[in-house]
Amino acid sequence: MVDVTHPLRSAAAPAAPAAKTGLNRLMRRRSSVAFLMCLPLIVIITSLVIYPAGYSMFLSTLNKAQTKFVGLDNFRFLLKRDVFLMVVWQSAIFAITAVLFKALIGLVTAHLVNNLPAKGQRKWRGMLLVPWVIPLALSTLSWWWLFDPTHSAFNYVIEAFGGEPIAWLGNPYWARFSVILVNVWYGAPFFLIMYLAALKSVPEQLYEAAKIDGANAWQQFIHVTLPMMRNIIAITVLFSLIVTFANFDIVQIMTAGGPRNMTHVFATYAFLLGIRSGDIPLGASVSLFMFPILAISAVFILRGVRKRGREIG
């Protein structure tokens, strides 16, 4: 009726319900709601991860004074430096050894905890997670006191048993061992909790079927447990590898890269060149050096995970 009596209003009327319907339709779509709910996270990741990453890529293409675009010259320069090549080697040793031991310890401990009676399991789970929960800088400082060059608590015990004191942080090889040990101590609980979750999700029927087929414990582990855990192992190893390659705190607090630069990893060396020596583009190049290698390996690992997921599904 209104439309009839007020022709001018009637001309404009269809636009409003259309807009309202459009918004409603948009809000009814689950993907739109999901996007809106993710928006705060997207903003945070964009401003705190993507932008800094992009900016450091940009910085790595500049000269020392940040006045000229030099393309990949910084990377070419680094590949000719003895110390940098040593840092690449050390970072690989540090990350691969630490991840290997973390995965191994995590797997063994997860099995042990999984086989504990349900009543006491929660206490053990809580206790074993302690290293992962304490702030890393704080726990590393405690480790540093244990390894203290002059007043090491470990050496005190060794000497009490008549042994020779060890230069934990003074000898480059012992220093490498020490930083890897602390990293394993800190990171193993992460593997433990992930593997424990994976173990609990393996259907009991599979083990029963394996037992009926005459499989022993080792065969059950190889043919049932491991295949069912492959995806979680791949993801945890990838995640841990990325985090361990980027580790800074442990090495910086315990050795600051010494003695003789023999414990430097990418992050500490990037800090030394970029912040302490004032060559920010070169520091950015050091920190980005592993990016393509890790990105490619992430693509392959995640592709394998998806493929296996489809097979299981």
């Binding site: 060059p149 002059t150 230069a167 942080l169 003074g170 010494g258 003695p259």
Partner: peptide
């Protein structure tokens, strides 16, 4: 020198003197 000097930070020598060693 004591062998640990290769691992000392800037406080290492201070502690060495203060300890009386």
């Amino acid at each position: 020198n004591p062998p640990e000097v290769y691992a000392w930070d800037d406080a290492g020598n201070n502690r060495w003197l203060i300890s009386g060693k």
